[in-house]
Computed example of a mutant assay.
Amino acid sequence: MMSAVRAPFRRLRFAVSGRAVLLAVAVAGAPSLAYAQAQPPAGGAPSTQPAAKPAAKPKPDAKPDAKAGSKPATKPDPKAAQRPREPVPMPLLGQQISYPSLDTPGGSGDIAYGAYQRGYYITAFNEALKRARAGNDPAAMTLLGELYSEGLGVPLDPKKAIEWYRKAADAGSPGALFALGNMTLAGRGVPMDEPAAAQLFKQAAEKGSAGAAYNLGLLYLQGRKIPKEPSEAARWFELAAAKDVEDAQYALGVLLKEGNGVEKDIAASARMMGAAARLGHITAEVEFAIMQFNGTGVAKDETAAAALFRKAALAGNAIAQNRYARLLAVGRGVTQDKVQAAAWHLVAKNRGLGDPMLDEVVAKLPEPDRKKAQTQAARWESGRS
């Protein structure tokens, strides 16, 4: 009989403008933490199309001021991608969102951001600089900050990025405040200062930045340079979770499950884990599948749990690969298939997750089936279906 298992918490990500910083600080009773990422705002009018992960990104904060043509004014800078980047003290992760098409023929959009999104960085810089010099344009200023921060079309210059982000923040851009917070947190262009970063995140969150709310929650949960207050962390996570920041939903689900900073509520935890899982948060998929299989906080559904384990297994999660292998081995929630079970077990085992019960399943397979499982596992490992 399958027993309840607990998926190890993944590292959460701090949201960072243009980059993400993996800090991996263990917190008792909570997942280890890392900050999630945001892209610069799509400086034109708000999109009517749904974004893949809109809440972790700054919102547009200026109106379009030009009609975009079908082609950028200049070609991409061929040397931009080759320029050396400033050393970053922490690994980079990222979250991407789906932007609307801003420069389609006959459409009304933003030339600067349309060029930026397509890699025409010199055009983006020239258009944004022209707008920034012409008047109070926080979206253009934010884009200039992003270009200098990343060294796209211009030399990498964190100090100039800070200058433009500050101008944009003074003009009311929550995205620029968010970016300033992340650069202050990482010590890029300014001295590293976690309390100052927290203040910037708070200002951005109060202006509607979901990513900043999530980051602020992580700082309160870590309690390194600011007081550790799980209840405050939960409050900011809740704000970000309501805007579909999947990392915030997962983090809040953890707190609700353990009663850390909030009243313990397994059903609410399951709802948060389910919401994050639906947005593609792999560790939440594993956690929610375990809850579904065991009927913890949610109706018991072994078939749905098996499907979710498979989804996370295909994404490379070793826990999911192990649990799906066990389900295949015994035929719970899925048709029994010991060869496929053995193949998934071998993949998980190669990632360091052994299982004596599944070792026995492999050992008892006829030699042709065992070789078939080994071949299938090798194909998966090499990226073939």
Score class of each variant (00 low, 15 high):
M1G: 15
S3F: 11
V5G: 15
F14P: 02
V16A: 14
G18Y: 14
G18F: 10
V21W: 12
A28H: 03
G29I: 04
A30W: 09
P31Q: 12
L33S: 06
L33P: 05
Y35Q: 08
Q37H: 07
P40G: 03
A45V: 11
T48I: 11
P50K: 09
P58L: 01
P58Y: 03
K59I: 14
A62R: 14
G69A: 10
K75F: 06
P76W: 12
P87W: 08
P89S: 06
L92Y: 11
I97V: 12
T104C: 09
P105F: 12
G106Y: 06
D110T: 04
A112H: 05
R118K: 09
Y120L: 04
Y121C: 06
L129W: 08
L129Y: 12
K130F: 05
K130N: 04
R131T: 05
A132I: 02
R133F: 00
A134Y: 05
A134M: 09
G135H: 09
D137S: 10
P138W: 07
T142V: 04
L144T: 02
L147Q: 00
S149M: 11
D157T: 06
D157G: 09
P158C: 00
K160N: 02
R166P: 04
L180S: 03
L180P: 03
N182R: 14
N182A: 15
G187Y: 00
V190W: 00
E194V: 13
P195N: 01
P195V: 02
A197D: 01
A198L: 05
Q203T: 14
A205I: 10
S209M: 12
G217F: 04
L219W: 00
Y220E: 00
L221K: 12
Q222C: 04
R224E: 15
R224S: 14
K225I: 00
I226S: 00
I226P: 00
S231I: 14
L239V: 15
A240K: 01
V245S: 01
D247G: 08
Y250K: 04
A251I: 11
G253C: 14
L255M: 15
G259F: 12
K264L: 11
D265K: 05
A268M: 11
R271H: 07
H281W: 04
V286H: 02
A289I: 03
Q292L: 15
K300W: 03
A304S: 10
A305C: 07
L308N: 06
R310S: 05
A318I: 09
A320K: 01
L327D: 04
V330I: 05
G331M: 06
G331D: 00
V339N: 02
A341W: 06
L353N: 05
D355V: 03
P356V: 10
M357D: 07
D359N: 12
E360K: 15
K364A: 14
L365H: 03
E367N: 03
P368F: 07
A373M: 02
A373E: 00
A373C: 01
T375R: 08
Q376Y: 08
R379H: 08
S382Q: 14
R384L: 12
S385Y: 11
